[in-house]
Design a protein around this nucleic acid. Structure first.
Lengths: 241, 241
DNA sequence: ATGTCTTTGTGAACGCGTGCACAAAGATAG
DNA sequence: CTATCTTTGTGCACGCGTTCACAAAGACAT
């Protein structure tokens, strides 16, 4: 996550652990790079290094998918690419809508990684009437009024929300009511969704704050502001009631 | 993370679990909203609902910071805002550089959540000479040649990489060599960094693929492509060596 | 065919995170 | 002051994820 993690907590869908699923795209990317270089096989050690993980973890991850390796040799690159793609559902086409075409929404629409690998931007939607009809990344922006029609007509099941925080929950509810069951949320808000709907959130502000935490620990290990002892140390200017 | 999670794996920095640190920004956001509505106190139950977590988890999280609540009453909102801000290191100013001012980089520069909460965009850096001097979000873009000087002059310790994948590792190394110790990576690549450097990654493509996985499980629970039995079932068109 | 060498696949142990459930603490009323 | 009621803080148990370490499996040479 960057992930934020707000999907089903302990429900390993069909035996594959959630943590493994989250790493499969990583393996797939590394394997695709190898495939383009026409490398026929890789060992778990090499692939793990390329994906930035432990080799034992990688082997265990693959073991959940089945026995796709050859002992003494390694894994067949092309074969693995196919198997992981299939497992992730990337052999089919996923129409996606992006709601909220501001700076971020426009950047997402232009993002190359979207188009590749089975994802297709089916529509861009914005609440601003002035945006309607204007093309972004070659796709004309449509007004929010059309949201339900767009979802149903295109059979969209994955929605991306890049609206301001205030509009996110309402947009979310309309998407779900129209048939969307997976949402990627860039708005800095907690989305309330019914069971059966997956939400993943990407929150720049949160990521930065986590980095700041570690950064503070690195630099000011001793010289922390005024006085600091235990976890319940000093009293600040603002006192509790 | 979105999460991506590529920081120190089991090193709970100073007793606060990593999972708790990742939730502190969430609590802080909910508390800030309450503060703006001049709500004096909240119970763990209320705050947990607003942050989208379990109330027991929230109480345990806060217990790592110290005993900041009052039994029978709840938590003082202003006091908690201060404590969490301090713990996250948001009471100080963090200059941040963004490297790679394409669509995404520009969107990040314009992102409001950046400016708030102690983060300040100190500089925008791009490798394209044509970009140099052009203002983005009111800040003139500087050329990559200036990178080291910018980092040292501004005392930057947090860098954001939004370059194409091919340039990310090199940019990363230059940032680190110049003194950056925390990196937020938007490029779809694994970054290799020395110990002591924190990396968090945000990867749109990966998040979508994870959603696609669950989406596939939801829809095609039985009708999966051609034939499918066990995890080591059918042989695809592409055969292994 | 036999032996050696490489690499996979996995059993088992460990540690972290989560959630339950309850005792302790304090507020509030009488 | 005593009783009651609310809400925190946490001990405990459980389950998931990670890692180690090794046996099994196959390639390859002789």
């Amino acid at each position: 996550m960057a992930t934020g993690r707000n999907h089903r907590p302990a429900t390993r869908s069909r035996g594959i652990p959630e943590a493994t699923v989250a790493r499969l795209p990583l393996y797939l990317r590394a394997l695709t790079a190898l495939s383009e270089r026409s490398v026929p096989t890789v060992s778990s050690e090499e692939l793990a290094a390329a994906a930035g993980v432990n080799s034992a973890k990688l082997r265990k991850d693959f073991s959940y998918l089945g026995s796709y390796g050859t002992r003494g040799v390694g894994y067949d690159v092309e074969y693995l690419v196919y198997q992981i793609s299939r497992e992730l559902g990337l052999t089919q086409d996923w129409p996606v809508v992006i709601v909220g075409i501001g700076n971020l929404g426009a950047a997402l629409a232009n993002y190359g990684g979207f188009a590749s690998r089975g994802f297709r931007v089916a529509a861009l939607i914005d609440a601003d009437p002035a945006m309607a009809g204007r093309p972004v990344a070659g796709i004309p922006v449509q007004h929010t009024d059309e949201l339900e029609k767009i979802i149903t007509d295109n059979g969209v099941s994955i929605g991306v929300i890049s609206t301001p925080a205030g509009a996110a929950q309402q947009v979310c509810e309309r998407l779900i009511a129209a048939g969307v069951t997976s949402i990627l949320n860039f708005a800095p808000t907690v989305l309330n969704v019914p069971d059966g709907v997956d939400v993943r959130k990407v929150d720049l502000s949160i990521e930065l704050q986590i980095l700041a935490f570690h950064e503070q620990r690195k630099s000011g290990e001793d010289s922390e502001g005024t006085a600091r002892k235990g976890p319940d140390g000093d009293m600040p200017a603002v006192m509790p009631a």
